[in-house]
């Protein structure tokens, strides 16, 4: 497994698009924390910087926005996956001695590694920002609501697995990215609101990742702190989110196994 990951890193690290997209990701991850600067106020009610970016609510809000940046990483995974088809290197890797299964496992280990890295980035920058914005009495709640960190990890895995699946299915970068984006916005909404409006639609992949796992906490804050922000993602949303990651990777594997390359 480590060998497969090393092969993937040999391909990825010198890839300029990777460097650019990852830099954009890092930039967004840090810049989004600056919004707290202008929220102002030091009171303990409403949309104050201490309420939004202090412990423990920062994990609700930060993951909420950071989730969207995972779209960039999912697109990166699409690039990396489609490159193997465009350059015909998936075929070459197999000719050189990898099994089809190993090519899939290589990509999955890469996705897991990137998810770990992004989660670590989230934790470090979250801790730094939390320490800056928190009211002194909230500092001891540093790891309150930390279930959302885990949700973010699952969401990273799921989004990149989705990218892997779309990349494998469509093979061409442009096509895969466009269909991925269409799936991300209109299709999921149509499925959710139009076709499965009652309950089930809320657990379509995109809804699970963006609405269920990291629910929008604004209502709770707007109510002036009368309602507490949710302390943890629901177990069901985590299970469903993880299941989708497995399904997307599994489908990618199934396609790779069946297809002539």
């Amino acid at each position: 497994m480590i060998r497969l990951l090393k092969i993937e890193l040999l391909k990825l690290v010198p890839y300029r698009t990777f460097k650019i997209l990852f830099a954009i990701y890092l930039l967004l991850m840090t810049l989004v924390l600056l919004v707290g600067k202008n929220l102002g106020g030091s009171g303990d009610e409403g949309l104050t910087s201490a309420n939004v970016l202090g412990f423990p609510n920062i994990w609700n809000y930060y993951t909420l926005y950071a989730c969207y940046f995972n779209i960039i990483l999912a697109i990166l995974v699409i690039f990396v996956t489609c490159n193997e088809f465009t350059y015909r290197t998936l075929r070459q890797n197999i000719i050189d001695g990898l099994t089809r299964q190993e090519t899939v496992i290589g990509k999955i280990t890469l996705i897991v590694l990137l998810s770990i890295i992004t989660t670590v980035i989230l934790i470090i920058s979250g801790l730094v920002a939390g320490n800056i914005y928190s009211l002194p009495e909230d500092r001891d709640q540093m790891f309150g609501h930390s279930g959302f960190i885990f949700a973010y990890f699952i969401q990273s895995l799921g989004m990149m697995s989705m990218g892997y699946f779309f990349g494998t299915l469509f093979k061409r970068t442009g096509l895969a990215v466009i269909i991925f984006l269409i799936f991300l916005f209109p299709i999921d909404v149509i499925l959710r609101e139009g076709i499965f409006p009652d309950g089930f639609g809320d657990y379509m992949p995109v809804a699970t990742y963006f609405l269920k796992m990291v629910p929008f906490p604004l209502d709770h804050t707007m109510s002036g702190g009368l309602e507490p922000t949710p302390a943890a993602p629901t177990a069901l949303s985590l299970v469903v989110g993880a299941a989708y990651a497995v399904i997307f990777c599994g489908l990618g594997w199934w396609i790779t196994k069946k297809r002539d390359l």
């Binding site: 040999l10 391909k11 010198p14 890839y15 300029r16 490159n83 350059y87 015909r88 290197t89 075929r91 070459q92 000719i95 050189d96």
Partner: peptide, 13 residues
């Protein structure tokens, strides 16, 4: 060791 049709490489490497 094989060479099938055209050579396939990562062009950026």
């Amino acid at each position: 060791g094989s060479l099938l049709e055209q050579p396939n490489f990562y062009p950026y490497l």
